Amino acid sequence: MLLTQLEYFLALAREQHFGRAAAASFVSPSTLSEAVRKLEAELGVPLVHRGRSFEGLTGEGELVLVWARRIVADHRALSDEIAVARERLATRARFGVIPSGIAAVSRIVTRLSDANPLVSCSIASGLTSEEIVARLRSYELDAGIIHPSAADGPDLHTVPLASVRAVVVCGADAFDADVDEVTGEMLARAPLCLLSPGMRARQVFDQEMHAHGLDLAPRVETDSVEALLALVSEGSWTAVVPESSLGGRLDPGLRVLPLVDPEVRTPLALVRIADDPAPPLSTAIDAVSRPA
């Protein structure tokens, strides 16, 4: 059994398509298909349902998938251990982040890169906490920024992070010029657009509003902060977004106002798989995630 065979099999399971899996692995479809067939021959079971195209994994394939992810992850950790012994940690750190965690992951990635110049990073944004946890458990991510309530098992190691305040983004004429903060009751009278109900920042928002006797009904919902900001830029919409998600993307002429009565804050945590011993990359991420 070759490591490359497992890596090609993981790519196929992830992409659900021979051509896309081959492209992601930088090999031809025939090379990838032959590697998977050799893996099947060695294990003595079919791993893939084949018709005219990929039709899913067999039951045995699902079982092998779990072990393949772990074997590839362990091989990567071993390589990192050797690199650390040579004082040259050189690997790729894969982060997943919910919309509220953009600023937090930016700080962590910057600190990680400064402390480990040979480590590169990738960030998958716009995910839900549950999606991030699932990808951690399948070893598709190395760490994530999530709502801490989604860290639902002893297999997860969490580091608490600072909470993020929700703010109101609106056009210049949405509220009187002398208004310098927005209440929940004011939002109830505004043309409101919010994040989708399945996202934790929205759930926290709804809970706080409900606790203050307010059940707001947005006219537009989306899973993208970018879409909310575009709506506000194009029309007379009022949006509520995590303050940390704004960055420098705000169009001139828009206003950002504090949300009060109630104030809404989303707690955050960095989470990773609680491997013991922790791989070198996990140790490096932990070191830069603690409060300065």
Rank of each mutant, 00 (worst) to 15 (best):
L47F: 03
L12I: 08
F54G: 01
E185R: 13
A103E: 13
H212D: 09
R92G: 00
T91H: 06
A230L: 15
L156A: 02
R249E: 13
G59A: 05
V225D: 07
G253T: 08
C193W: 06
P277I: 02
A177I: 12
R94L: 03
F95E: 01
D178Q: 04
A201R: 01
P242D: 00
A21Q: 11
S79M: 12
P117H: 10
H210C: 06
L192F: 03
I71R: 02
A93P: 03
L187T: 11
A115H: 08
V119R: 09
E60Q: 09
L192S: 09
D251W: 14
A201S: 05
R272M: 15
A190S: 15
T91Y: 03
R50M: 10
L161Q: 09
M1A: 08
S236H: 08
P46R: 12
D178S: 13
V119D: 12
A284C: 12
T183F: 07
L118I: 04
V241I: 15
L136Q: 08
S125D: 07
S113V: 15
R88P: 00
V240F: 13
E7I: 12
D223C: 09
I71F: 07
W237R: 06
E40W: 05
E263W: 05
R219Y: 10
A151E: 04
A227N: 09
T266Y: 11
